[in-house]
Design a protein around this nucleic acid. Sequence first.
DNA 1: GCGACAG
DNA 2: ATCTTGTCGC
Length: 230
Amino acid sequence: MTTVDLAAWPTTEAAALAEQHRLRPLVEPHGPAPAPGALVAGVDVAYDDERDVVAAAAVLLDLDTLEVVEQATAVGRIAFPYLPGLLAFRELPAVIDALSRLTRRPDLVVCDGYGLAHPRRLGLASHLGVLTGLATMGVAKTPFTFSSTDPGPERGAWTPLVDAGDGSEVGRALRTRAGVKPVFVSVGHRIGLSEAVSAVLALTPKYRLPETTRQADSLCRRALGEAVRG
DNA sequence: GCGACAG
DNA sequence: ATCTTGTCGC
């Protein structure tokens, strides 16, 4: 996989919006769920804004066992400020760097955040998919600007996640643990919504968040700590 | 115009 | 995201 050319990465809001407009038609919102034995990657990023340091992690899990089979990290400078709707420009350079250090190609990448559930239908997960060609999806912890009713209390229950602007279903609120707050699932690239939901259920036998997300979260925090301290 | 707003 | 104490429960 190729890495990001930071010299060509957008630095202004206008340039970022233009880039989203360019990439948006390239999203493929359909595709199969990962097959048994698939390698599913989790990616996440941690920041030290004071020192302008970002650390990303990519962790590869065996979908059958949920065991970590490979992991990689990347450390760099923060490439873009946090602006709602433009999160990809802040997170992706480091994420793609970490993914490029894996020796095996993931069958699916699970992101922290959204894919098509985005004001311009190009959230972090979809953006990553288009840039890399990988199948991607997003699992977010909060509903962003979208709305949904509360799913039933049992694991597996879901309700549509709707964009009030046009009334379209942009994702699903999914209960991954009985009686616990739902997560918000959306398509990234080369996977369908029902398939993305089934992948999340396969990754959440025990906790609210996918095992991929949990592993990537702890690894990027460790990497940031080592980069900043020792 | 103002607030809200993935991480 | 990050800053942060205690607390309830398996």
